[in-house]
């Protein structure tokens, strides 16, 4: 008797918490994944490990110009159950020399900040395509280095563009070729 009651209670909890929230995320993902596929930046591709799971994918960016030109940079993107109240979790899988990406893969991108008061952080009006375009811009925009994650890289960029370029290329050769 007790175990049956416990089991029913557990089922109820699951259906009123976890289950429904997951289905909200999945419902949003069905639309957003299509939109993303249509509006993907040039030089970017998206790979799903499991075609039935839209919440987990890899973004591959191949810059055709700029400091990181000809590198292949992979990002894992995980859309958690709380989406779209919270931003996706993004990690850079390719080691690189970049002021806004640490060597261990953390990313400094304003729209991925969950609690932000400046209006640039996450908001449920943002979509996966905004996240992907934001990551893409990390390789083209070189304006926003005020709040760097890799301080050494930011300093180097500030003091010697040439030294910065050499270090970036060295990392690309070592880590960002396939």
């Amino acid at each position: 008797m007790i175990t049956l009651a416990q089991r029913l209670k557990k089922q109820q909890e699951e259906s009123s918490n976890g289950h429904n929230r997951i289905s909200i995320r999945d419902r949003l993902l069905v639309k957003e994944s299509q939109e993303l596929a249509q509006l993907l930046p040039p030089n970017c591709t998206v790979e799903y490990e499991n075609e039935n799971d839209l919440s987990n994918f890899t973004l591959i960016i191949k810059p055709t110009e700029g400091y990181w030109e000809n590198g292949i940079f992979k990002f894992s993107i995980y859309v958690t159950d709380e989406y779209n109240m919270v931003p996706p979790k993004v990690k850079c899988l390719t080691k690189l020399w970049h002021p806004n990406i640490s060597e261990t893969g953390e990313i400094c991108l304003s729209l991925l900040r969950q609690h932000s008061m400046d209006g640039l952080g996450w908001s449920p009006t943002r979509r996966l395509k905004d996240v992907v375009w934001g990551l893409h811009a990390l390789f083209t925009d070189l304006l926003n280095f005020e709040d760097p994650l890799n301080i050494e890289a930011a300093d180097m960029y500030k003091h010697s563009k040439l030294e910065f370029q050499i270090k970036v290329e060295e990392y690309v050769k070592l880590f960002a070729k396939n």
Partner: peptide, 19 residues
């Protein structure tokens, strides 16, 4: 509704999903 992307006059995505 810019949050769930369903018309505001309809039930929200969450309420639609809940049984």
């Amino acid at each position: 509704c810019a949050i769930c992307r369903v018309q505001v006059m309809d039930a929200c995505l969450r309420c639609q999903a809940e049984s």
